[in-house]
Design a protein around this nucleic acid. Structure first.
Length: 731
RNA sequence: GCCGGAGUGGUGAAAUGGCAGACACGCUAGCUUUAGGAGCUAGUGAGCGCAAGCUCGUGGAGGUUCAAGUCCUCUCUCCGGCACCA
């Protein structure tokens, strides 16, 4: 072959890998396990985004490295298939959401397979599959039975033009995302999940996991733990984080639609002073005890309020612990976190598996009737009442109470799109999602495979999916359904891939990059390589096609080198410079992959290739090392040449290269920087490990240095062995 | 306002307190009959200089240090998150 034909190579190896089940995980393997997870995509009509590829390639690199290190690796993929765009498309076209989803999933799967990811496709899941959502419903019922799901009147976002209830995500700047009409609030009975019961654990257990500090901070801020005290001012109880400022309290305030004096007074227990009770806009409902003590000298908002309404402002001594105890101040902790509204008045989601019976109130559907399947519809548009379209199918709504057999009506709301993704990392471990597995028989596998070792996903999910699934997991832990307190041991995040001008890629802006076309023109290996090389992994970055051209150029050069005669040399004699560089490269690539510094790992491979091109012969062992280090990034091309080096097994089954541990003779010479007053004046080449005295003599012996020293006195010299000497002169 | 993160060439960026700009992209010049978005060689932070070389240079102002992109203080700008949470 004369030219690097990526299409032939990539197709060929993808077929071979699939036929040989190369990436099939043996969940019962005795080897050490490693569970790599990436956020599974929502199969939208737009197809795969180059941002998905960034995340999936990164963990593909990690997964491949772990396999080479001897781990049994699970790297699964699936579809987060319930969601609004699909439903909206169904409303517009009349096509059933299930049909649309199937088409989109097929497209996504094909795209992912063409990228050569090492997913175990035998474990593919789909949250909209009845077998899957049957378990989602069953798990919901476990939460319900544990008292974690309840119904309450809550405001929903209502678009008066579309006559439709909107999810928070669909409200943009107070207006309907679809038509731009200002959104109204309507009261509706909604299911809520009591995530606040886990607020404390969700905060505290962040200490148990390896998340990037900003992610932990953002979750902690969202949970908003605040420690303080509640104190009784007569029959009004206030919450404060600064109880010691109680002598400065000159009024009491609770929430009101407008600022006004209530006419009531309360007694400050610290000094028996009679102080007025106000209603104030700035006091929030449902926080703490619902009332605050106004201390104008210690709180800016209290001060502003006092100034506005001519309330007293006075400095006062701080109260001590003993006094606070005496007046009955009791410790209290509050959280900003609210319970999770879990109802959606929508069709394309998991039906909430509860029925309402006059005698028994809300009753869970029995296991044998799970899953509660979504009934087929003619029209997917919501009804005039703002209820789910399911409410319009009277024959479906009418049912019997599982307890008494009396007449009952089904809940017609569905679950939010966060439901299926709250437990999907467990689903990959369940062999068969059929309806008879509702006892979660996979427990022994859970014990072996949990927690997920490394989970990569978007920062935008920090306070949504990531928090929700931690909550579900903790609830399931308390129900003894999972063996660990936390679902994910390590979490990392990729930066967004933006359009070239730094804008977000979107269909409406028309700046979306199509991966299919890129794979066709440049190849999957080049695309993968570029996405890893484009910049620091955790940083947002603009798409530059020229960068992709550069990645392709690198692979072209690998190709030319590998088909040249100098790649096949069976030499036992190693050039010491080359050997040194190879060792350096192994170290750099190995370390950098662990830290997700893929850009510098690849640059190390580029440096090695540059060196190869200037080297007359590349020994077989070095060639193999190079291909192995390249293989996580460009799996197809690496495999192609691995086989040409008469290897019988796949490169992806070969062990990771190791460093030579003995003191290398090829590192005998080092470059030592010679500075004068901190400025570089010369560079010495010297044997490694010289004494300070010898380095100094060598430096002082250099002509250039002597010129600088003329007529000056050496005040001191600083020597860093093998690196640097700084000669400090009198001024 | 509060909480995070980031400011380095024309661009993406590198740099355990120890040679700032590795590795790429782009550009310039040259070579190569060069069907291609090709390849090879050299150059490419700014200023001065024929050159050797010198000076300046990591948003800004100070500081610590023999030595600062890196540590400390203050400050400006941009990006992300939160929104009166007592």
């Amino acid at each position: 072959m004369k030219k690097y034909n990526h299409r032939t190579i990539e197709k060929k190896w993808q077929k071979v890998w699939t036929e040989k089940n190369l990436y099939r995980t043996n969940l019962k393997s005795r080897r050490k396990k490693y569970y790599c997870l990436v956020e599974f995509p929502y199969p939208s009509g737009e197809g795969l985004h180059v941002g998905h590829i960034r995340s999936y390639t990164a963990l593909d690199v990690i997964a491949r490295k772990r396999r080479a290190e001897g781990f049994e690796v699970l790297y699964p993929m699936g579809w987060d298939a319930f969601g609004l765009p699909t439903e909206n498309y169904a409303i517009k076209t009349g096509q059933p959401p299930a049909v649309i989803t199937k088409r989109n999933v097929n497209r996504y799967r094909k795209q992912l397979q063409e990228l050569g990811f090492s997913f175990d496709w035998s474990r593919e899941i789909n949250t909209a599959d009845p077998n899957y959502y049957g378990l989602t419903q069953w798990l919901f019922l476990q939460l319900f039975k544990a008292g974690l799901a309840y119904k309450a009147k809550m405001p929903i976002n209502w678009c008066p033009k579309d006559k439709i209830g909107l999810a928070n995500e669909e409200v943009v700047a107070g207006c309907c995302e679809r038509c731009g009409t200002p959104v109204e609030q309507r009261e509706k009975d909604q299911w809520l999940l009591a995530i606040t019961k886990y607020a404390d654990q969700l905060d505290r257990d962040l200490d148990l996991v390896d998340y990037p500090p900003p992610v932990k901070i953002q979750q902690r801020n969202w949970i908003g733990r605040a420690e303080g005290a509640k104190v009784k001012f007569g029959n009004i109880e206030v919450f404060t984080t600064r109880p010691e400022t109680i002598f400065g309290a000159t009024f009491i305030a609770r929430h009101g639609a407008a600022d006004r004096f209530t006419g009531e007074y309360a007694i400050n227990p610290a000094n028996q002073e009679k102080i007025p009770v106000w209603e104030a806009e700035y006091v929030m409902e449902g926080v703490g005890t619902g009332a605050i003590m106004g201390v104008p000298t210690h709180d800016e908002r209290d001060r502003a309020f006092a100034e506005k309404y001519n309330l007293p402002i006075r400095e006062a001594p701080l109260a001590d612990e003993i006094l606070l105890k005496k007046i009955g101040a009791r410790p209290m902790t509050t959280y900003k976190l609210h319970d999770w509204i879990f109802s959606r008045q929508r069709y394309w989601g998991e039906p909430i598996p509860l029925v309402f019976c006059e005698k028994h109130n809300w009753v869970p559907v029995s296991n044998k009737d799970l899953p509660v399947k979504l009934p087929p519809l003619k029209k997917y548009a919501p009804t005039d009442t703002g209820e789910s379209p399911l409410a319009s199918i009277e024959s479906w709504v009418k049912t019997k109470c599982p307890l008494c057999g009396g007449p009952a009506r089904r809940e017609t709301d569905t679950m939010p799109n966060w439901a299926g993704s709250s437990w999907y990392y467990l689903a990959y471990l369940i062999k068969n999602l059929k309806t008879n597995t509702y006892n979660l028989k996979a427990k022994s596998l859970f014990k072996h495979w949990l927690p997920v070792d490394w989970y990569n996903g978007g920062l935008e999910h920090t306070t949504l999916h990531l928090l929700y699934s931690r909550f579900w997991h903790k609830a399931l832990y308390d129900l003894k359904l999972v063996p660990t307190k936390e679902p994910y041991g390590k979490r990392t995040s990729h930066g967004l891939v933006l359009a070239a001008n730094g804008e977000k890629m979107s269909k409406s802006r028309g700046n979306v990059v199509n991966p299919d076309e890129l794979i066709r023109r440049f190849g999957a290996d080049a695309l993968r390589l570029y996405e890893m090389f484009m910049g620091p992994f955790d940083q947002a970055i603009g798409w530059k096609e020229n960068g992709l051209v550069g990645a392709r150029r690198f692979l072209d050069r690998v190709w030319r080198l590998a088909v040249s005669s100098k790649f096949k040399v069976q030499s036992s004699k190693l050039n010491s410079d080359l050997q040194f560089l190879v060792q350096q490269t192994i170290k750099k690539v190995t370390d950098d992959i662990e830290q997700m510094k893929f850009n510098t790992a690849i640059s190390a491979l580029m440096i090695l290739l540059n060196h190869f091109e200037k080297t007359p012969a590349i020994p077989l062992a070095v060639a193999k090392t190079f291909l192995k280090l390249l293989s996580p990034f460009a799996p197809h091309l690496a495999e192609e040449f691995w086989v040409k080096l008469s290897e019988k097994k796949s490169i992806h089954l070969a062990p990771w290269p190791h460093l030579i541990k003995t003191e290398p003779r090829w590192a005998a010479m080092v470059k030592i920087v010679v500075q004068i007053n901190g400025k570089v004046r010369d560079i010495l080449e010297a044997p490694a490990g010289l004494t300070e005295e010898k380095i100094k003599n060598l430096a002082l012996g250099k002509e250039k240095i002597q010129l600088w020293l003329k007529g000056k006195n050496i005040q001191r010299t600083i020597i860093v062995p093998n690196r640097l000497i700084n000669i400090v002169l009198d001024q």
